[in-house]
Nucleic acid binder design. Structure first.
Lengths: 229, 229
DNA sequence: CGAGCGATTGAAAAGACTCAACCACCGTGG
DNA sequence: CCACGGTGGTTGAGTCTTTTCAATCGCTCG
């Protein structure tokens, strides 16, 4: 699972720091953090944690992408979130004090730092700004999920696919979206076959372009329009 | 909207206190709170707040039920949560600092106390236990919503209806479930007609009994089974 | 070069939605 | 006290989306 341990990346000049909650830490806290976290490389398809187990720390994503998902009754994955560099992963269960409700798995090679429970709570307690940002993050996400529930309940697969592609564009930035068809289907919340058919439609309509598994968005305006609102 | 103002209910012996986050407040804080909150009765179908507006305080539900919902593109409601006595309503937007992402409306006569933003943050800052409970509440709910998203994406309407009925049983306790067909459909995430047909099925199978709009659960084991997992 | 997995396509079936009509209950006003 | 109007609940029929199952294709890795 773990490829190798490293201390090469320092938190204070971590590439992901500027869009991370850790940017609110002061230099002293940062150096304290640097002493105590452990960093590792992960291969593609490594698990960070699985639903039902108990958290002992949180992960800070330095490089790569991580999918966060639950499994429905038939074992089918539902991807709830795709984390990008800078994000802290797994603090929800840490804060609620119960088991993970979701699993987290890398979808490409990743560099991740591990912050222990103690260290995390120390930062929460000592730095009000950091704590408030965590609280804001939770609250923000809670709002997002209310919207997701509504989308799942009311939108067609076609609309949801548009919406997901746009979300993924935010996450992938300039790079092309690079997910397996199955992951994409599990993010949209549909069957893989349905997803493939719709991608084909979008391609024929000139909205996207595909290169094997990669998807490139050509007409995001139109996608917004399809996604509705 | 507001029927009459009252100070008759004291927070310290509020019927809902024992299952409320305010139970962590000490006597001094409670009496401080009592001085500063305002209590009112609300009729059925009164709005507490609407999506898009900005919060200036939170509501503490003493008696009655409140639906919390978003609207999809066509204006159709999706009920995210039904609050029961003891719950604090509307603190998510308060904490994230942005506009409400949901609306809240009473679905029966309610008694509600209003706690101003200042008062709420004072309690958050001064009482660590209260604050931690709020954080735990947020985290817990975030986990619940991941599960809801998965249910919406993967379960059939029949399964979701079972699941919703069981949830509602928790909320209504001994009383029969008392919601309009439309609200129930908007909670399950389906069309009213579909909901009615399924209720009929359940009734014919002896799982539930209906008295005009009221629904009584007769066989929750079987419902659990249908709901899956 | 072959195995195997992921991607794709086709056809049929199922689930859910929409639209339209009808019914039942309830409060109002004559 | 009863007819009226209105809202919410119910039913039917037809349609469309989406899923399922089965089969094929194609690329990659050993």
């Amino acid at each position: 699972m773990l490829i190798k341990s490293y201390k090469s990346i320092s938190c204070s000049n971590c590439a992901a720091k500027s869009h991370s909650l850790i940017e609110k830490l002061n230099p002293i806290e940062l150096s304290e953090l640097e002493q105590n976290r452990g960093c590792s490389y992960y291969k593609k398809n490594d698990f960070l944690f699985v639903e039902g187990s108990y958290p002992r720390g949180v992960y800070c994503l330095n490089h790569g992408k991580v999918k966060v998902f639950t499994r429905g009754d038939e074992g089918k994955e539902q991807i709830i979130h795709i984390a990008k560099p800078g994000e802290i992963i797994g603090f929800r269960a840490m804060l609620s004090g119960d088991a993970y409700r979701v699993s987290a798995e890398t979808i490409e090679e990743c560099a991740l730092c591990y912050i222990s429970k103690e260290e995390f709570f120390k930062m929460m307690d000592s730095n009000t700004e950091f704590r408030n940002d965590i609280i804001k993050g939770l609250s923000k996400e809670l709002g997002d999920r209310a919207v997701s529930i509504t989308e799942m309940a009311q939108k067609s697969v076609r609309e949801r696919l548009s919406s997901c592609l746009l979300q993924l564009q935010e996450i992938y930035g300039e790079e092309p979206i690079n997910l397996s068809r199955e992951d994409l289907a599990n993010f949209v919340g549909t069957a893989t076959e349905t997803l493939i058919r719709l991608l084909k439609d979008f391609k024929e309509d000139g909205l996207i372009e595909t290169q094997t598994r990669k998807v490139i968005i050509l007409n995001s305006d139109k996608l917004h329009q399809i996604a509705g609102k």
